[in-house]
């Protein structure tokens, strides 16, 4: 038994390359853990009951409330309430800094954003559901038609196109025409993004229903439409619901189209035809803000969004695994 000379080298290459795939996987898992960790710790520390029940407060208003001092904001003397002398220079000993607006803690909450996100995403989902579910039924029940391939490809185009494009289209169609940023425009933009998700999951879930069930229904004399609504959809319902939940989570996190359509707001608004607040917009705008208090709100909003996504994904995971187990 002689071992070929280059065998050791080949073995070495084998182990190095196999090791490097492990390293590559680590490279994906490390940022994931870092992002989730930072959002959970920094975002979690921003949470309080006030965070969920209060709306946005401008930094100097909150500062005045914290001091117990009454003067909120005098436009003629903007430095009055915050301990800076009238000429705008800080005293040399630095005492003024203690009541500086920049030093304020977390102020206000994001209730306006939570309400706005629920309304905008919910409306978008309502628009997307009929198209998505019926297109999914078409793709599954008439799956061999040539037209189904075209629909499938258009679905892929929709889900692959940048989310800002949906915003631009609705901006042209709705915002320019109505001369008004509005929540309903945001819902329409989110609809464009949610339709492909609902369609493809509905299709996949309906395809999982065994062919024998379709045959049994047909054998009893049921037409296709009746068997679809009473046999096949009920069998696939848990899967379809998970698809709808994933679409909701995806829509709730979309920011780019909302910048162009909803614009954002700092107060609670339930008027569908006016600008509205939304969690991702809260996270985006307050990240750009120079006030640490608003930055903290941004972390908090990111935390709520992250929890939404994590919970939805884990629920879906559990639900689909149970389904897979049951069908076995």
């Amino acid at each position: 038994m002689s071992i070929p000379k280059n065998y050791r080298w080949r073995k070495f290459v084998d182990q190095v390359m196999r090791g490097s795939t492990v390293v590559a996987t680590g490279c994906a898992v490390i940022p994931l853990i870092a992002i989730i960790g930072y959002v959970l710790t920094l975002g979690g520390s921003a949470l309080s009951t006030q965070f969920f029940t209060d709306v946005y407060q401008p930094p100097n208003m909150a500062q005045a409330a914290a001091d117990g001092s009454t003067p909120a904001f005098d436009p003629n003397d903007p430095f009055a309430g915050i301990g800076v002398p009238d000429d705008g220079t800080a005293p040399a000993d630095g005492t003024a800094l203690e009541s500086d607006v920049y030093a304020g803690g977390p102020v206000g909450g994001v209730l306006h954003g939570i309400i706005g996100t629920l309304i905008i995403t919910g409306m978008g989902l309502l628009f997307a559901l009929p198209i998505g579910i019926f297109a999914g039924i078409y793709l599954s029940e008439y799956r061999n038609e040539r037209y189904a391939t075209i629909v499938r490809f258009c679905c892929d185009v929709l889900s692959g196109s940048p989310s800002i494009v949906a915003g631009v289209v609705i901006y042209i169609l709705v915002v320019i025409q109505s001369q008004q940023f509005s929540a309903i425009a945001g819902s329409l933009a989110l609809m464009i993004l949610m339709v492909p998700i609902v369609t493809r999951t509905t299709e996949e879930m309906l395809k999982l229903v065994p062919e024998s069930m379709r045959e049994a229904a047909r054998g009893l004399g049921a037409p296709t439409w009746y068997s679809t609504f009473t046999v096949i959809i009920p069998a696939a319902l848990p899967g379809i619901v998970t698809g709808v939940m994933l679409a909701f989570a995806r829509g709730a996190g979309e920011t780019a189209p909302l910048i162009l359509t909803v614009l954002g707001s700092n107060v609670i608004s339930t008027n569908l035809f006016a600008p509205m607040a939304s969690l991702p917009l809260v996270a985006y705008r307050y990240t750009e803000s120079p006030y640490p208090g608003e930055n903290t709100l941004a972390w908090g909003a990111a935390f709520v969004l992250m929890m939404l996504v994590l919970v939805m994904n884990i629920l879906v995971r559990v639900a689909t695994r149970r389904r897979a187990g049951a069908s076995r």
Partner: peptide
């Protein structure tokens, strides 16, 4: 876990990127 990375909204990557 890897697919979870795809589900995180892009604005969270932005916030994390800016501050961390």
């Amino acid at each position: 876990l890897v697919e979870l990375l795809a589900a995180i909204p892009s604005v969270i990557y932005g916030v994390w990127g800016v501050f961390v």
